[in-house]
């Protein structure tokens, strides 16, 4: 049961930081300044192109080898998850923003809305609706990915299940853990269902 709290903490902290940070990355990816664009593109390629488990090890051990400074492994885990998920969210935001009809910007400009007003009141609500299913997909994956934190010895759900399974010589705890992941994702899916239905009033 204590394993659950770590999994849930990883889950919420990752979302808390990566959802907004992904937006910054998306902006960088669409930047007019070429070097900024290249840099963010490289970052996204690396984050998406290498296994998360490897990134976890990197973010924990790299500071140790480079600066001979060790730091809390939980912090390392959160940093790795946030940087990884921001890359995925950034690409989702970008696809959403780029799919917006130019006419929406033009109508806003002709009516005299400021750029900021146009973004927050006209563009963002529509983009949000468009990308919600893709975001839901990523969030479901995140629930399952929290199990990878076990590689750094974080006592999250999967690791707790593994150790107790070797203690009692039975695979039952691991199966129970599987049920927990399933239930959590069932709740996540239901949540996204409700929000999607709430936004179903147009288009």
């Amino acid at each position: 049961m204590k394993g659950m709290t770590f999994s849930v903490r990883i889950f919420f902290l990752t979302l808390l930081f990566s959802l907004p940070f992904g937006f910054v990355v998306a902006k960088g990816r669409m930047s007019k300044i070429a070097p900024v664009r290249w840099f963010t593109d490289l970052y996204i390629q690396i984050m998406r192109g290498t296994p998360l488990i490897l990134q976890l090890l990197f973010f924990y051990f790299a500071p140790y080898y480079i600066f001979h400074a060790s730091y809390d492994r939980f912090v390392a885990v959160i940093v790795a998850y946030v940087l990884n998920y921001s890359a995925y969210f950034a690409e989702i935001y970008r696809s959403g923003l780029q799919s917006m009809d130019r006419g929406q910007y033009e109508a806003s400009s002709v009516l005299g809305f400021t750029k900021a007003y146009t973004f927050f009141h006209i563009i963002l609500p529509q983009v949000f609706k468009k990308i919600l299913p893709s975001i839901g997909n990523e969030v479901v994956t995140l629930v399952k990915d929290t199990s990878l934190a076990s590689t750094l010895g974080i006592a999250e759900l999967f690791r707790v299940a593994q150790t107790s399974s070797s203690r009692v010589f039975s695979t039952t705890p691991i199966f129970v853990a599987g049920v927990f992941y399933f239930v959590m994702n069932y709740l996540v899916a239901k949540f996204f269902d409700v929000v999607e239905r709430k936004l179903d009033y147009y288009e």
Binding site: G103, E106, A107, K129, E203
Partner: peptide
Amino acid sequence: LVFQNFNLFPH
């Protein structure tokens, strides 16, 4: 300005 394809705000 009135556009050819309206550009109303769908939301």
